[in-house]
Design a protein around this nucleic acid. Structure first.
Length: 109
DNA sequence: AAGGTGACTGGCG
DNA sequence: TCGCCAGCCACCT
């Protein structure tokens, strides 16, 4: 799995994703900004993609800027994310887009 | 160490 | 918001 030295982008991403409360979602770009690199949204995806099974990071609470699940549909990972969010009470606008208006995490506030 | 890849975005029509 | 596209940037060869 992935152990990242503190101070790295990856570590910051993990740290912030852990802060997303259940029932709320954040965009890749939001996390990138919190992590200190506002334009590194894709980097956030790369980090989450490399997460180990026991990393204990709520990766499913991260969606793209319009609320759509950005995970490739294969391997059923996508369906899993959908289910996990549903279980937390996140409402969906359609098959693979959450209702951002009501569940977007303000990054605290 | 250089280049390819992609769980992204914002701009434009 | 939808599609398309050109930047972007961290990851992984």
């Amino acid at each position: 799995m992935r152990r990242d030295p503190p101070g790295t982008f990856a570590a910051a991403v993990i740290r912030h994703v852990r802060r997303i409360p259940p029932g709320r979602v954040a965009a890749y770009g939001d996390i990138a900004a919190l992590a200190g690199s506002p334009r590194a949204a894709r980097g956030v995806g790369a980090v989450l993609n490399g997460l180990g099974p026991d990393q204990d990071v709520p990766w499913w609470r991260v969606v793209n800027r319009v609320g759509r699940l950005s995970i490739p549909a294969d391997l059923g990972r996508r369906a899993l994310q959908r289910r996990l969010l549903l279980d937390e009470g996140v409402a969906f606008r359609d098959r693979d887009a959450v209702d951002l208006e009501h569940h977007h995490w303000d990054g605290d506030a």
